[in-house]
């Protein structure tokens, strides 16, 4: 199946809901990030001149995904960038915060003359927010973005 995401337009009319899936947690995190990225810009219209590493740790996987998606929104505003692609690796260990994310965001400074900009994402909401491992082992998330 691999990583995938799908915008759901039958709910939350003014905002953006999406489902993301991945065979692994890492794939889920990459898929969900790409959904957030694609809400804001056509990634193919963005160059790759800028990168930033993101490292996060949380006790719960749902909190880690939430913090990760929020980090993308935060970096977009503070760095003035939009994104082309993302790499994400999620590992689990036995420390206090067992879920760790190591990710790289790849993109470029915002430039409306060169990029196909879409809608600004204001926030990642907790409305209908869900992260779970499905029976067959794949990972699933449901997210609503305020745009």
């Amino acid at each position: 199946m691999g990583k995938a995401y799908r915008f759901r337009d039958e709910i939350v009319l003014g905002d953006l809901a999406f489902e993301a899936t991945g065979d692994s947690v890492s794939e889920l995190f990459a898929a969900a990030a790409l959904a957030v990225i694609e809400a804001m810009v056509d990634p193919l219209s963005v160059e790759t001149s800028w990168t930033q590493e993101v490292r996060l740790s949380e006790a719960e996987i749902a909190d880690l995904l939430f913090e990760w998606l929020n980090a993308i929104v935060f970096i977009k505003d503070t760095e003035g960038v939009v994104f082309h692609d993302v790499r994400a690796t999620v590992i689990r260990d036995s420390e206090k915060n067992p879920w760790h994310l190591e990710a790289v965001l790849i993109g470029d400074r915002v430039d409306a003359t060169r990029q196909d900009l879409r809608t600004d994402v204001k926030a990642v909401t907790k409305h209908l927010y869900e992260v779970r491992q499905q029976e067959e082992g794949a990972w699933y998330a449901h997210v609503v973005l305020d745009v």
Binding site: L13, G14, D15, T125, K126, D146
Partner: peptide, 8 residues
Amino acid sequence: HWGYGFPI
């Protein structure tokens, strides 16, 4: 209409 938390 359908929002998040409260309706719009």
